[in-house]
Simulated assay, not measured.
Amino acid sequence: MTLRRIVSCRNHSKNLKQALKSSGVFLSNDLFDKVLKWVRFSHGNPLQALEFFNYTGNRRGFYHGALSLDTMLYILGRSRMFEKTWEVLVDIKYKDRNLITPWTVMVVLAMIAKVCSVRQTVESFRKFKKLVPEFDTTCFNSLLRTLYQEKSMTDARNVYHSLKHSFRPNLQTYNIFLSRWKSSEVAEGFYKEMREMGVEPDIVRYNCLVYVYCKNREIDKAYKVVEQMRDEHISPDVGVGWSAR
């Protein structure tokens, strides 16, 4: 494709804008997303991709979508161009703040967490308070999910406890930790905290609690959970039965 050749060609690095103008190609949002996606997966030049992104963003009648923004941020983050990343986000904030979503938060934090400390990752998370339309629990969950994927569950748990009073944890918050429970004590602690936070467990949460009890051979506790489910009119499913075997 003409646009792929222009964006990837070193000879066009100094005259990318002129080459794009002279191409005669009608640049739709769909075509732009495809070219940027191709740059991402072909590990193309991030600076040329950024120039392509900025050029299209300044054209009359052309508007970037959330997908193109997140793809551009991924390209920059992979190359550790974090200053450029924040520049793009600030620019988008004034153009269309709604493009910056909780998924955007996770894309950026994941790139940062790969090479920076937990503290730096949390500091970067705080920057989003001035960028996203709603700096809420969904964004908090993006941070926790990033930490357990890129750092460790211990890091995610520590950050959760330090920031949980600034946000209101929900079922999705606790979902992040569910499959990672190793001891009954930790599971019981989170289960108790869910209740205290006003988050009522559902079948998935109960399944995980039964599973951790069975894994630690605490079968009596597992059966008590099943009885509790019945008392709350929650019918045990296949997951509970399989865990109890």
Rank of each mutant, 00 (worst) to 15 (best):
R4M: 11
V7G: 04
R10L: 12
S13T: 14
K14L: 08
L20Q: 15
L27K: 14
W38G: 05
N45R: 06
L50F: 00
F52W: 06
F53W: 09
N54Q: 10
R59F: 12
Y63T: 12
Y63E: 15
A66R: 12
D70W: 03
L73C: 02
L73N: 05
I75V: 15
R78H: 14
R80I: 01
F82K: 12
F82I: 13
E87I: 01
V90Q: 03
I92V: 15
Y94M: 02
Y94N: 10
K95A: 09
I100A: 10
T101N: 05
W103V: 03
V105T: 15
V108M: 08
M111A: 15
I112C: 05
C116P: 00
S117I: 08
Q120H: 10
S124I: 03
R126D: 11
R126L: 09
F128K: 07
L131M: 04
L131A: 09
V132Y: 02
P133F: 07
N141F: 03
S142L: 07
L143W: 03
L147W: 02
D155P: 00
N158S: 13
Y160W: 05
H161N: 12
K164S: 13
F167A: 05
R168Y: 03
R168I: 09
P169G: 06
N170H: 01
Q172D: 13
Y174S: 10
N175K: 05
F177V: 00
F177W: 00
E185Y: 10
E185S: 14
A187P: 06
Y191A: 07
R195S: 06
E196K: 09
M197D: 15
P201V: 02
I203E: 14
N207M: 06
R217K: 09
R217H: 04
I219T: 07
V226L: 10
Q228F: 02
W242G: 02
